[in-house]
Design a protein around this nucleic acid. Sequence first.
DNA 1: GAGCAATCTTACACTCGTAGCAATTTTATG
DNA 2: CATAAAATTGCTACGAGTGTAAGATTGCTC
Lengths: 217, 217
Amino acid sequence: MATDSSAPAAHVGLRESKKQETRQLISDHATRLFIEQGFERTTIAEIAEVARVAKKTVTNYFARKEDLALDHQDAFVASLAAIVTGREPGESALVALRGAFVAAAAEASPVAGFAGPAFSRMIADSPTLTARLRDLHDLREAALAEALAKATAAGEGDITPRAAAALFGAVHRTLFQRIQELTLAGEDNSRIAEVVTAEAAVAFDLLEPSLGDYATA
Amino acid sequence: MATDSSAPAAHVGLRESKKQETRQLISDHATRLFIEQGFERTTIAEIAEVARVAKKTVTNYFARKEDLALDHQDAFVASLAAIVTGREPGESALVALRGAFVAAAAEASPVAGFAGPAFSRMIADSPTLTARLRDLHDLREAALAEALAKATAAGEGDITPRAAAALFGAVHRTLFQRIQELTLAGEDNSRIAEVVTAEAAVAFDLLEPSLGDYATA
DNA sequence: GAGCAATCTTACACTCGTAGCAATTTTATG
DNA sequence: CATAAAATTGCTACGAGTGTAAGATTGCTC
């Protein structure tokens, strides 16, 4: 999602803009088919057909089939690390992460796990997508560990940042999964936000005595 | 791993024993080839060839290729839950899990992550196996959550057991990965045990103020 | 604006994992 | 020994993913 803002009004280029269009075209058709008939039951050949491009073009743009369904992967992976890096002076990592989650829940952010019933159903029904989501949670945790190591100036051999990242990551992942569950249960977003905000309070309170002061800016 | 003990000294059966042999034969050849040439570069057809069975027989015994490499999956998944379920009266979940990890490290248990350099290299070099290992960590956490829910008689809607399981699971997973890293770095098992025992102390101490009394039997 | 170079798209062929099915062989039992 | 049950096998097929080379499109330069 992070577009290059270093070239303000520069040459967009016909080739480049066509590439974007083609990519979007494929992605749109893919998402539609995935939601209509499920991820596993939709083939890449079928996507290529409705998008009227070669099958190879699809796999050129999207290395893995999962990439056709899951968007904004980079933003998701970087989210927790960014929250810690951008926290207010005097604010601890826990307070920043807690506040960010509550805010994300309030605005039903996809990064927190809000995806709508159809999309959530698609993910839940597909082992492949579920596994990929785990991957992303793991990458997110690794990025957070690095951010915490930098923020606390921890030594190379210190596992504290990794352990802390694992704990924070575990809480965020659990809450993410809860949002998915509640979405599949048919709750609407405001109700979900209400529930998970309360659950977030429980989970973060649990960590408070352990990590309340960790990585205070 | 749980064999049927309802037939004590009964007919082992030629058919049954041959099945075990065939399964072991395939598994042995597979493991050897995986370590020699890597997981991804070894095909199922090749394994079938050296084991002198049909390719279909291999896939009959092992539903996924990963199952040919990763053994004792059930034991791994059940390990943390079993520790909590079998803890001493008066012992908290944290104390039990902490003690079990230290003991596992001392005896270089595969369940904790000790696998030898060649095997660890095989896993690290294969995205497929790494992903599968994540799967198993996740299943293990889910089993632990259930054990904790039962142990604390938590209500259906209470996320505390899940959050706690996520935290304990995060610590065990982090230490597991550390053991893998140290193995790949060429350290011997006693040295690894020394290092991770110290790191376990840090990690579990971190959780102590939060979960020190949680799920005390 | 013509031509050349870079790059995107496409068709084709191929490997590999995985699944279904029917035939054949092997084991168990009456 | 005959018959049922189960394991093994060969065959076929599908889908994801990759390599390659030809064809089409865009960008750039003279």
